[in-house]
Simulated assay, not measured.
Amino acid sequence: MTARRFLASCTLLLFTLLLLPSQAALRAAEPGKLYVVGMGPAGPDLTAPRALAVIEKADVLLCSPRMPQRFAAFGTHIDPRKVAFDPWEKILGNEVRDLKKKDPTLWAKERDARIEEVQGFILERLKEGKTVALLDGGDPCVYGPSLQYLLQGFDDARFEVIPGMGAFNAAGAALKRSLTPENARFVFLTSPESLFGESWEKDDGILKDLAKYETTMILYMSLKTLDRIAERLSRYYPADLPIAIVYYAGYSGKETVLRTRLGSLLEDVKAMDENWLGLFVAGACAK
């Protein structure tokens, strides 16, 4: 090859490379993706491998600052440098609950503004071709705040949900019982607020109907109102109704199961030093 032809070939190659988009440009042209990741009830040992893989490859993480700390205690690294901010600010927490009681209008306004802010941030990152992971405790589809609050109205096509183990799964494992025993007609999973209303204003006639059948009743977020729950249940259920409270379901070394009956529930619970992380289970599986 002559020098002139070699030079021409090099010039053509250089021109071609200049016309090709860079990897960064290609990535930016591709739409990003949002993953709603179920983190399980405790740590990485109860988190799906696929969820951990998504977290590792994600460009941006949205989660509580406690999440990397919690997983670090198990020896699993969640890069805190990827955490943009805590998306649950003004959505969850004691201050939010207090504001909701004190000024429902202001609470709703601040919540809606926060949802708009978080969604706007996510959309900007997706336009940049970024992979965003929104880390939700437990299973996002069972009282998970991501789907229940933050992603209201968000385009379903823009995100994927990676399920996680829910507290009721871990509680069933702790009880070593089937939550769907042979004679059970169904599993009834709810919360006191969903069942009775925020101020307990809803009619409890549903309990009268449920009491006719063998069921498994699971109540999330119930420990703070057990006295009211016991009073309502006592109207329709016998004192010997089997009840279990599974504290720290799925937390190795902290998980505790209290088996009791409706008639002695409140007295037995007094001996337990925990009023938040506990799942209420009633029915034959609680024996």
Rank of each mutant, 00 (worst) to 15 (best):
T2D: 13
R4S: 12
R5F: 13
T11C: 14
L19N: 09
Q23V: 13
A25F: 14
G32Q: 08
Y35V: 12
V37R: 05
D45Y: 13
A53D: 15
I55C: 14
A58L: 10
D59W: 09
S64L: 12
P65Y: 06
M67Y: 14
P68V: 04
G75P: 07
V83M: 15
D86L: 06
D86H: 01
P87W: 08
G93I: 04
D112S: 14
A113E: 14
I115R: 15
E117K: 11
V118C: 05
L123W: 01
R125Y: 11
L126N: 09
K127R: 15
K130R: 13
K130A: 13
V132E: 07
D139Q: 07
P140W: 05
A157Y: 06
R158F: 04
V161P: 09
P163G: 05
M165S: 06
A173P: 04
K176R: 15
T180D: 14
P181E: 02
A184V: 03
S191V: 07
P192C: 08
S199C: 12
D204T: 01
M217G: 03
L219Q: 04
Y220N: 07
R228W: 04
L233K: 08
Y237V: 02
Y237C: 02
L241S: 01
P242T: 07
V246G: 00
G250R: 02
Y251F: 13
T260D: 00
L262S: 05
L266F: 00
V269P: 00
K270C: 10
K270T: 04
A271W: 10
N275Y: 00
N275V: 02
G283R: 00
C285F: 11
